[in-house]
Computed example of a mutant assay.
Amino acid sequence: MSQLQVILASTRPGRVGLPVFNWFNAHAERHGAFEVDPVDLAELALPFMDEPKHPRLQQYEHQHTKDWSARVDAADAFVFVTPEYNHSFNAPLKNAIDFLHTEWAHKPVGFVSYGGIAAGTRAMQALKPVVGALRMTAVVEAVNIPFVAQFVGEDGEFRPNDVLDQAADAMLSELSRVEAALRSLRVSATTSAG
């Protein structure tokens, strides 16, 4: 079964992204198209980029980079669960992306964005040229959560409405379809590199 890596971008204490992340991981597991690998960037705790050589060379000196490389390389598709900070995505996500290069290529990515009235969509739009530069394929289907606090109960659990559940299903199905279509490119790239 293909592996979907779900990355929680927010590292802020008290972040509303954690309940969103937990809901989406459970939803993805129920959907059944992927084996789910959840990654919380707060727990991953990557330092700011500290590798002396360009990531495209894959000549990593630090164990945290080697571990992150292996984990991203093992994934077949991604979902970024991202807040919107000042009309864009946050620094920890950009840092995690920039640590690597080749490991992201020819893999689809979807977005779960959240925020206020704009539902985090400006962060999602800012991410699209970044993932495109890495040869990732952003799927059109997305989960955009407006006024996210309304979906989080007093117990801290995220309670989606039918629209959000349907959006998650549509995105997961499209990620599965696009992942299958891109698989031959990943195999070709691995073969030519070896």
Rank of each mutant, 00 (worst) to 15 (best):
M124D: 12
I145Q: 04
W104L: 09
V130I: 07
V131H: 10
P47S: 04
A45H: 06
F24Y: 08
P47M: 04
G116W: 10
T82P: 03
A119N: 07
V16R: 12
D73V: 09
E51V: 09
T65C: 08
V163S: 13
V163L: 15
E141G: 09
E84Q: 11
P129G: 06
E154Q: 15
V112R: 11
L185G: 05
F21D: 01
V139H: 01
P92E: 03
L185R: 10
A118P: 12
I145V: 02
L134T: 08
S176L: 14
S176N: 13
S173D: 07
Q5G: 11
R12E: 02
R15L: 06
V139N: 02
A9P: 05
A70T: 08
S188A: 14
D40Y: 03
A167L: 15
T190K: 14
D155M: 03
R159T: 04
Q150K: 15
P160H: 07
S184H: 05
L100V: 02
G32H: 07
R56A: 04
V20W: 11
F158Q: 12
W23T: 07
P19W: 09
L46R: 08
M124F: 10
V148L: 04
L4P: 05
G32I: 08
L8A: 10
M49A: 13
A181H: 12
D50L: 14
A193T: 07
G194H: 11
L18Y: 08
I117H: 09
V16P: 10
L182T: 06
A77I: 01
D165L: 09
H64W: 03
N90Y: 01
N86S: 09
V72R: 02
A167Q: 15
L172Y: 04
H106D: 09
Q59F: 07
A180P: 05
T191G: 03
A9N: 00
S113T: 13
E157M: 13
T190G: 15
V112L: 11
F78Y: 12
L164V: 11
N90H: 03
E174A: 15
N25K: 14
D73T: 12
H27E: 07
A91M: 10
T82R: 04
P146T: 00
E154V: 15
F24L: 00
V152E: 12
T190L: 12
P55K: 01
I117W: 08
A26I: 01
A91S: 10
A123P: 03
L182A: 04
K66D: 07
R71V: 13
R186E: 08
T190M: 14
T121W: 09
R12Q: 01
P146M: 00
K94D: 09
T191I: 05
E35Y: 15
F89E: 04
V140F: 08
Y114I: 04
V16L: 13
M171A: 01
D73M: 12
R135E: 13
L175W: 01
R30W: 14
P38V: 06
V6L: 06
S69V: 11
F48R: 14
